[in-house]
Design a protein around this nucleic acid. Structure first.
Lengths: 196, 196, 196, 196
DNA sequence: CGGTAAACGAGACGGTACGTCGTGTCTTTGA
DNA sequence: TCAAAGACACGACGTACCGTCTCGTTTACCG
């Protein structure tokens, strides 16, 4: 009781980290090969060399496995705000995010975001991991830009952020036009300058 | 169109328009009750009082049926550009679109957009019907605004449009903040004024 | 309505006799190879080249399939009461039944009798097919023997029949001693002569 | 046998007799509630408050546990041959056995006899405990009857015993007619008197 | 009396089979 | 000749137990 840090006493056999890793590896491979639809519990279990119940013991359904697999691999992104010009750093981050999402994996992430139950814990974690964390980075940069007077002091940051990241996911979802780094440049420029 | 145009003589029993309507009605009901996942061919056929092959005769798979059902119901939108101020009309349209999408059906549309094969004909039709047609209306308004000098002459309309509609779908997809008409106002204002 | 003989008009695709036969054939093969425990639905379906739901459409569980397979093959037996001596014919029938049951299949039949829900329709049919029909044949012979004065007029036929067939299944179940045709001879002799 | 024979000194914690008893108690309860099919290792272990490996340490599989549970409870029977008339004692024993088997437990015993591997040690013990021991008692009585001249000297005792006990299990297995004490009376009478 | 080794409870493991559901195709009868 | 009905082959679903395997924890014996 002295160490209040560890309240959960372990009883029984501890879960196999090897199995966990094998499952996520298998799910990642299937995702790469056939997209989210290929991540079936049976295929994951077989390829991981694991029993189906072991998969179900830790994830409730195939969406969860796929999300966990994606999150396990991909580092969130984490563009450091280098440079003293905050807007410059923001531009770099937007370009990095666009680059990351303009891939099959990016499409998968978007599909899974749209398909998953928006209320589930895992779905929230997934949204945070891939998108909202990026948006939070952007917020920090924008706040810094505000402090630097690179943007006006009364800027509504929430709206501005959606103005920047929204177009990215819009193009990803609709595919009506190319999604590349120059597009993000134009988005940022347009948002900064305004239409008038 | 009078009559001589159609050389394909009808042989046998003609397709039942009644069946088609019943199928779409059933699909709509299922969609409303259980979301896109509930629109299964079996459920649709049973509820419509129709054989499964009849459904397959009209649509290739369940996604198609669900999309067709949604498109059949919802009038595209078609906000008429009333008023001589183009930006005002644009604002009205953005509000209308947001209002329409801030519903369960809006979520369903987004889900189905993300889930469907982006290359299929029906998927393209669906995107057009629900989103790109709205964007095209916006384009017309924006061009008019340009002509009116309500916005600057060198505005990149493609980027500007994504700046306006992107945030809407971003919030719909992520759910990180409310999606209402006032949000669209703020988006339009921010985009017009710029950040600086 | 004129032909009252066929009230059930067939709608839809008729069941495939080929599938039925393939399923029963597969079940029979599995039974021969691995006993009743080897007759799993999955194995049956796979070996028959048939989907699992097709098996379940027609039989409720694996016991039913195994029983049906056994009944489908094995002709019940049907020893004709040849010869004018009824007891002689009865002896022939007892030997035939013993011979048939002193095989792996005979053991399987007994196991399945003991394992199956005694109330189910199929279980009753199974008991009838393999055992009670034989007992009924024996009853006919015994009644004839009565008429012929080969046995006494006040013989309790129900008890006598169980006296004859009971020992057969007793040995089959317990395996405490050989079950062959000479045993059945001795059973019949002992039952006819009595212990005194 | 005195003591030097067993070189295996006991090291470590001795097996818990308490656990053994709890397991058998649990198995018995499950058997009573749901028949042999309900005696699963998991259910037994959980209800006994015992780990699964502890169950497996004592018995090799679920059949063994169920058999052991049945044998542990039910005293074999052990009808004492009271009275100087051996046939009378035999009658009493037959009635007692019938009474004991005309119960759900009797059905379970029969099912398990039929289902178990006939070659396994435990299966043999089970058959001995429940059936062959009764038959051996009957043999003793019949031999006594022979000595007493209650039955003829040249009686084939093996056949006679199967004539008496066979019908009991036959009815139990087939359920084609009632199994009660009066039936056993009639069986004995018929066997003694003969058919002629 | 302190070490130690086996049995303990718990429970995760790789598996097999379960019985269900939905897919998209095929084959009938009936309109 | 199309529509309805529904059987078909297929394949994934999620669950129940199997029998085995660690874990950390007793508990009795043996030195």
């Amino acid at each position: 009781m002295l160490n209040g840090v560890k309240p959960t006493r372990k009883r029984g056999r501890p879960r196999s980290e090897k199995a966990r890793a094998a499952i996520l590896r298998a799910a990642r491979a299937l995702l790469a090969e056939g997209g989210p639809g290929a991540v079936t519990m049976e295929a994951v279990a077989e390829r991981a060399g694991v029993g189906k119940p072991t998969v179900y013991r830790w994830w409730p359904d195939r969406h969860a496995v796929a999300m966990a697999a994606l999150m396990d691999t991909t580092s969130g992104g984490g563009v450091e705000a280098s440079g003293h010009r905050a807007l410059g750093a923001l531009r770099a981050q937007l370009r990095a995010v666009a680059k990351r999402f303009a891939t099959p994996t990016g499409r998968h992430v978007t599909s899974m975001l749209a398909a998953s139950d928006p209320e589930s814990e895992l779905s929230k974690a997934f949204r945070n991991h891939f998108v909202l964390a990026r948006r939070a980075e952007g917020r920090a940069l924008l706040e810094r830009a505000k402090a630097n007077r690179e943007v006006r002091r009364d800027l509504d940051v929430d709206v501005a952020l959606d103005l920047l990241y929204g177009p990215l996911f819009f193009r990803l979802l609709m595919g009506h036009a190319a999604l590349d780094e120059s597009f993000m440049d134009r988005v940022l420029d347009a948002a900064v300058r305004g239409m008038k």
